[in-house]
């Protein structure tokens, strides 16, 4: 995987998730950050920090990104969500527009 094709997402606790840029772009918010010409530091370093999103939730979000890509390609599986994660995940999803 070439470095230019990945992005690093950092959780509130400082955990780093390196994922495909294509997957991260499932989130409209991240897409805007990475593509806007305004010279966001995120655009240059391909690194986004989410001080509001915990590691557990961010991991789930990353899983969702990949699931979403598969789903778009016609692989219709279910995306399991543990009930105890629903509230926090919902807020993160709302923030990330995903």
């Amino acid at each position: 995987m070439r470095k230019e094709d990945t992005v690093k997402l950092i959780s509130a606790e400082g955990f780093e998730f390196v994922i495909d840029k294509e997957a991260a772009m499932v989130s409209q918010t991240i897409r805007n950050m990475l593509t806007s010409p305004g010279g966001f530091s995120e655009t240059e370093h391909r690194e986004v920090t989410f001080p509001e999103i915990s590691t557990t939730i961010l991991e789930k979000i990353c899983q969702y990104f990949y699931w979403s890509l598969q789903y778009a390609n016609g692989k219709e599986t279910e995306f399991p969500i543990e009930p105890e994660l629903t509230l926090e995940l919902m807020m993160a999803a709302n923030y990330l527009h995903t």
Partner: peptide
Amino acid sequence: ESSRLVSLCIEAACE
């Protein structure tokens, strides 16, 4: 599409 994860969460929360 952008709100799909939100609706999945709501769905799971109200299972």
